[in-house]
Every structure is written in structure tokens, then in C-alpha cells.
Nucleic acid binder design. Structure first.
Length: 462
RNA sequence: GUCCCUGUCGUCUAGAGGCCUAGGACAUCGGCCUUUCACGCCGACGACACGAGUUCGAAUCUCGUCGGGGACGCCA
């Protein structure tokens, strides 16, 4: 039997990192097993469900590289089926209508909290056999009263619960919409889902759902409940995928790698390509305890990925960012060479772009600390000599540029730092950049010469 | 309150009774490299929650205690 898993988010308007990991685990398991990964949108009820919110899910998944198989299932389009199944269960005496009002329920629940240790529905309508004409009503599932419910979770192991602690949960609301609890089972059955991989907050629900499967005469799928990710909600903006893509400028491989390793591991391995993740991931290897989110490590993992992915991909991710910065670049050898230079030292895609803008934009001002450290009365002459040496270069290569620098340093008996740092400050605006020869090469001969003279003037006029 | 799950360095984890004086990674601290920043390299610090068992032997098995998380919606 081929593995069929699904990711079933409700469109809340942003992709929470916990959800993203659930999606990743499902996707990895499907790809690892040669199975299928289905996307389902849980949009029963809820005013907040907008198309924009649905689009966020698509965008996040696409960016992460988690492609889904087949059409997307929308719960809102399946109301007839839910009603049909509900009716069948009522006819078989496995579900019943309940016309208790919310107020009555509320009161009973309060009363029960005083006397009993749990607050289940008291079963007022359970044996009434109410017909469709009983007024405003919901449909409840008739939960077994005796014994216990047990299942083997692929991550958590054996999980047991007494039926007496389980409720006659509502399957169909009074407005006719199915509840999550009910719709999941109907849909997972329709989609022939074999493995349900989701967050651990659904563990208790699982017993209800398994009871439903049995009532429908079906075998439940296998369940795997992944632990939660802690430490996200306190940080502003950071729980969503968009934040890591935009504000932090991460590579999807970086986020995926980190998120996969949070709660899952493969020996001492830390860095995985997507392909390696698919090969090595197994849902059984996921840990049981909650994990604490650590942005520092995320950044480090991302840095490693920044050095590993194909340079063309780095280009794809930076093109738009350059455009936003007002720079027009095209994919090609020159850009790849630039990105190779930048990726070795950058921590994010954003940094690759922002730290390389000096190539197009001459410094408007000079960093104060760099100025006081590297500019002095002798500097103008030095920079002008250097400008002349560079002006005389005939073959524009890094070797030639290096030779020019060496010549200046030798003539003046200066250590290279005494030449390179003032030059760097003059050309970049700050005394921090990639190797100075590379920098000069990218800035270009004429522009370098211009900037050197300009800085010399600046120092003289101070 | 009731129920469910969970507990190895600050954090992510390796570990499936002897290989563990507990390994790796991030962070931190120190050093090296170097024309700067960063990278990289080397080193240091640092944990089996606690208490009883079982066993020749326990981080690994059992029970209890304490701690952490979750569920108790006509939300998903």
C-alpha cells in the first residue's frame, strides 16, 4: 500500500513555524516512502478565512519547496458528504441529535465541575432519538461508555485513555457545518490517508477520531504526533515563515534543515541537503519531548546552507532583493562570481545584497570609526599614488590589482594593512569588506580611481 | 480540577544494560589564521531532574516524587 499523508492547515493568514514543520515532516515522509503528499484546506466555518489567507499557505509551501500531489481539497466544498455520513451514523444509532441549548450546556458544565472530576456532556439527549424536526440541534457522536481506547503512536508509543474521560463530541454544528473532529475523519477516509502526522496537541482528539473510524466500519490510519516547538510566541513577528523569508532573509534550505533537526536527528549529522533529508528522514526517529526554538542555531544552519546550495539558486533568491535596492542584475558569470565572493561571509541573503551594494553605489559618507583609524595626513598622497598605479593596469585582473597594491606598499615601506585599509575605506566607505583585490575588480578600474581621488580630496578638506 | 504526553550540557541532540571518567552541534569564553569584517581551525566551560527498586552492572528497565507541555469549545 502506498503511503498517503496530508497537510491540513486552516487558513489563519500566516504560516506558523510549527505548522511549517508539520508540513515538512509529512512531505519528507511521503517522499522518503515514495508516497503522496496531499494538501487540504480546513476552511469549515470561520469568518477569518479569506482567500488571501489561503494564498499564504500556497506561497509558504512553494517557497519551502514542498510540492503537493493532486488537487487541493477544500472542506467547504464537501458539506453534502459530511451530512450524508452524519445521517448514516444517526440511522445506525451511532450518533444522535441533541437540542440542548448552549446556555443549558454551560450551566450543566459548571455544575459538573463542582461535583465530578471531568466536564463531559451529560448525555441528556443520548437516548432520546430526536428526529430532524427537534428544532435547532447539533449532531453528537455516541461514544462508548465502557473500557479504554488505545493506539500505537509512531512517535509517542502506546497511548491509552478511558472512554469515561471522552465526550459525546459534536459532529455537526447547529448551523449545519461539520466540526473539525468529524470532518477530518471523513476527509482522511475519502483521501485514503494512511498516516496522519500532526502536532502533539491532537493526541487527545485521536481517541475520538478512532472511535469514529470504528463506527464507520473502517480501519483508522497510523498516527504520529510530533512534539511542539516552544519559545516562538513570545517573539514578535517570528512565528511565521514569511518572517524568516523576508526579515531574516533565510534560504528555504536553511529553514527546512533547522526545523527538521528540531525534534529529529540522524546521528551526529547537522547539515542536510533536501535530498539527504528525504533519504534519511523517518518519522519513527522523531523525538517525543518538546523542543525550544533557537534562532542562533537557525542562523548558523542557514549560513552553512548558504555556502552549499548551487550558486544559481542564490542568484534566484537575490535577484528580487537587488531590484528592491534599485539595482538591476542579470544571472550570469559575473553575478555568480560576485555571489561566490559574498556567500562565503554572509549570514543571510539580505546581507549578501546589502553588503555588496557598494559595487554600484559609491560611498556618500565614510564610516567614522574607519576614518579615524585609517585616514591621516599622509593618506591623500597614498590614495593618489594607488589611483595612478591602478589607472596604469592594462589587463584588468585580480593579480594585476594585487601587484599594484604590492608596488605601492613596497615603495612606501608599508605593511599591506596600511595600504589596504585606507583604500577599503575610500572605496567601500567602511573598513570592512571582502578581499580588497576582489572588491576593486568588481568596482572596476575607472570607478575605483574616481573613488580614490574623491577620498583624497575629502581628507584634504577636513 | 480531571485526563493525556514528556524530562541527557543554557539550547538542539547521540545514546535502545556493560563500548559512557556520557559523544556531536549552536551559544559562551580563550587562542590561531588574517590587509579589515566575517569565515575557518584549535581548545575550554558545560548535562543523564530526584528517590527507591530490578541487575554482577542502569543515562538506558520498573515504580514513586518533582518539573515541563498539551487537552478538556457548536476553534482547528
Amino acid at each position: 500500500m502506498t503511503v498517503r499523508v496530508r497537510f491540513a492547515p486552516s487558513p489563519t493568514g500566516f504560516m506558523h513555524l510549527g505548522n511549517a514543520r508539520t508540513a515538512l515532516f509529512n512531505w519528507l515522509y511521503a517522499r522518503h516512502m515514495g508516497g503522496q503528499f496531499i494538501l487540504r484546506i480546513e476552511d469549515t466555518d470561520r469568518e477569518r478565512h479569506t482567500e488571501a489567507a489561503v494564498q499564504v499557505i500556497y506561497d509558504s509551501l512553494k517557497w519551502m519547496g514542498l510540492n503537493w500531489d493532486g488537487p487541493v481539497l477544500r472542506q467547504s466544498e464537501r458539506l453534502a458528504i459530511y451530512h450524508e455520513v452524519a445521517q448514516k451514523l444517526i440511522d445506525e444509532g451511532k450518533a444522535y441529535r441533541c437540542n440542548c441549548t448552549r446556555e443549558e450546556l454551560e450551566a450543566k458544565k459548571e455544575a459538573m465541575k463542582e461535583t465530578a472530576n471531568h466536564a463531559c456532556y451529560d448525555g441528556t439527549c443520548r437516548e432520546k432519538n430526536l428526529g430532524p424536526d427537534c428544532g435547532t440541534h447539533v449532531v453528537r457522536f455516541k461514544m462508548p461508555k465502557e473500557g479504554e481506547s488505545t493506539f500505537e503512536d509512531m512517535i509517542q508509543g502506546t497511548i491509552t485513555k478511558n472512554y469515561k474521560d471522552l465526550d459525546d463530541f459534536i459532529m455537526v454544528r447547529s448551523d449545519g457545518m461539520p466540526t473539525y473532529q468529524f470532518a477530518v475523519v471523513v476527509d482522511d477516509l475519502a483521501l485514503q490517508i494512511t498516516h496522519v502526522i500532526r502536532g502533539a496537541d491532537h493526541i487527545d482528539n485521536t481517541h475520538c477520531q478512532i472511535a469514529l473510524y470504528h463506527a464507520l466500519g473502517k480501519e483508522p490510519p497510523r498516527f504520529a504526533h510530533a512534539p511542539r516547538i516552544d519559545g516562538l510566541s513570545k517573539r514578535k513577528g517570528s512565528p511565521s515563515v514569511e518572517y524568516y523569508r523576508e526579515a531574516l532573509g533565510l534560504l528555504p534550505e536553511g529553514l527546512n534543515n533547522y526545523i527538521a533537526r528540531l525534534g529529529w536527528s540522524h546521528g551526529d549529522d547537522e547539515i542536510f541537503s533536501m535530498q539527504e533529508l528525504i533519504e534519511k528522514f523517518d518519522i519513527c526517529d522523531v523525538n517525543r519531548a518538546n523542543g525550544e526554538f533557537d534562532e542562533e542555531k537557525l542562523k548558523w544552519v542557514n549560513e552553512q546552507q548558504l555556502r552549499l546550495v548551487p550558486i544559481e539558486e542564490i542568484a534566484d533568491h537575490t535577484l528580487e532583493r537587488y531590484e528592491k535596492a534599485g539595482i538591476k542584475v542579470e544571472k550570469g558569470e559575473w553575478l555568480y562570481k560576485l555571489l561566490e565572493m559574498m556567500r562565503k561571509r554572509a549570514h543571510s541573503l539580505n546581507e549578501i545584497v546589502s553588503d555588496s551594494l557598494f559595487i554600484w553605489n559609491a560611498p556618500q559618507t565614510y564610516d567614522e570609526a574607519s576614518v579615524s583609524k585609517h585616514f591621516n595626513a599622509d593618506t591623500p598622497a597614498l590614495l593618489e599614488d594607488l589611483a595612478n598605479a591602478i589607472q596604469n593596469i592594462t589587463d584588468w585582473s585580480e593579480t594585476a590589482i594585487e601587484a599594484a597594491f604590492n608596488e605601492i606598499a613596497a615603495n612606501r615601506s608599508l605593511k599591506m594593512g596600511k595600504v589596504a585599509q585606507p583604500a577599503r575605506t575610500a572605496i567601500v566607505g567602511i573598513a570592512q569588506s571582502p578581499g580588497i583585490y576582489e572588491v576593486v575588480w568588481f568596482v572596476g578600474k575607472d570607478e575605483t580611481v574616481r573613488r580614490l581621488h574623491k577620498a583624497a580630496e575629502f581628507i584634504k578638506n577636513r
